[in-house]
Design a protein around this nucleic acid. Sequence first.
DNA 1: TGAATTTGATGAGTTATATTCATCAACATG
DNA 2: CATGTTGATGAATATAACTCATCAAATTCA
Lengths: 296, 296
Amino acid sequence: MRQSYTPSIPELQSFTACARLGTTTLAAGHLNLTQSAVSRSLATLEDRLGVALFNRVRKRLVLSPAGHAFLDKAEAILAQLDDASVGVMAFGGRTSILRIAALPSFVRSWLIPRLPGFTAIAPDISLDISARLDPVDFIRDPVDLAIMRKTHQPTGSTAEIILPENLVVVASPALLKGASNLSDTDLLNLPLLQQSTRPTLWLDWFRDGDADPRRALRGARLDHFDMVIDAAIAGLGVGIVPHVIARQSLDRGTLVLASGRKFETGDAYALILPDGQEPSAEVRLFRDWLRAAVRR
Amino acid sequence: MRQSYTPSIPELQSFTACARLGTTTLAAGHLNLTQSAVSRSLATLEDRLGVALFNRVRKRLVLSPAGHAFLDKAEAILAQLDDASVGVMAFGGRTSILRIAALPSFVRSWLIPRLPGFTAIAPDISLDISARLDPVDFIRDPVDLAIMRKTHQPTGSTAEIILPENLVVVASPALLKGASNLSDTDLLNLPLLQQSTRPTLWLDWFRDGDADPRRALRGARLDHFDMVIDAAIAGLGVGIVPHVIARQSLDRGTLVLASGRKFETGDAYALILPDGQEPSAEVRLFRDWLRAAVRR
DNA sequence: TGAATTTGATGAGTTATATTCATCAACATG
DNA sequence: CATGTTGATGAATATAACTCATCAAATTCA
């Protein structure tokens, strides 16, 4: 029996996500909801409280003073709720939760296929994995650890490199028709799949050559590496992806290297932990397992 | 998009009410839900967290260690949510909330009929009135002020007497058939309506006489004074109720005094405010209005 | 400058969650 | 031992959360 003015959890989540990300559309993506759901939750919350939490400025949402005052409180409440829940689950001694934020491509291509290995040594730990493209904020996000590119390391955290980011160029055998070790000129005659969150990768690849930069940007645009992998397997074009992401498909033969060259971006995948608190037993267990897994 | 382990507000409310009141049945009454709803919410919460928050001992609920650890956190979260909501509503400047806990009979018979008077002088204050039989806990309950019997005043609060509790004996004119000023013996020949939360009132009334105590306890049992009033109006028997509760019905003629006697319990209705904080403008406004209203 | 894209809001419909009614069996009380 | 209380549960109902589709306003880009 909520008081008529008591917000619901989905409403608080929609509000805080909108406030932090700036649009209902981005918030929806973050929450794995539709934009419509977020917009409605926001409107319901405002009706409920009788206060405009955002000012509508040219179809944009601008936090109102009231919304600003409410934001920190709402986030604190959501954080405490998460901590209390995780805490009581740990107390029960039956299951504990390890909350991991990681890049979606890394999760699908690398982490998930190897998770049976972790589960086998830690059957009482329940993993809560959220796929994240944006950097983690350990104060705001209920996350115990993150696996991101090192350059996305937030302040107030410690990063341990686990895998360097080496890019390779891959395509399906059918697209290449048995060819391999293509020259840059050859590659430019093929559609080059674009990764929209990493728009300069092809330019970097062709940097030392005399390739026309505009030709390097032709091709379908996809926003995750794993989608690029899928498109490459389907023969839609040549993809430039981290070797670690492509490795499985290469081993299976659904993709082949289109070039003998590799490109080190200088970046790396890193295990990122928040400073200022002793890692829990679960975190340490996962970290040790991860260290061993990357050596194989 | 709640994580699968994130509790909902109704679940938290059911849990905290059960933990504090001891039974799902009492919790349900407190929350204005059915026992079934509370039982289910509890079960859902425990499933969700994978932890038994209560041990079931001979069909009784006993807080488990995990439940005990969770209780304070859950209550703090609910309290902060309420404060944040009320705070942002005040911020908006459009409406502010005044949260009042009061005896149900007093609310219905006295407060509500007079509220237009308060609303006329304070149209921007929205009242949130919860009917309460049990004493208020200002730390745990999101309540700005309470109107209770003085003997229910909790520690850490200040009580200001507004009305003495004078009991009168009332019945419908049809039941009395024009008689009035009945003797105690006459009364004992009529069904005497019992107020189950105040079971000794009839005994107190007949204390100085030679009435057989067992005959004083015959009659239908009802748990609020306003129900006693309704039953008396319906001719089911004679009720013993505070004069302030019966006054409206007496003025209307639907009830008459069955006896010329009054009985002062020594208790009183009091406005109760929490110590340690300056009363808000809304509380002060309501207090001043209440003082004036009881003088009329 | 115009076409394409993004954005928030909203009607209508669908799905998930909260709640009720009714009932049962275990337990407590006088 | 009869009666009342209690928590749990099947089935049905009510409410909240969410989606699809669409629109108009606003922004972006060539």
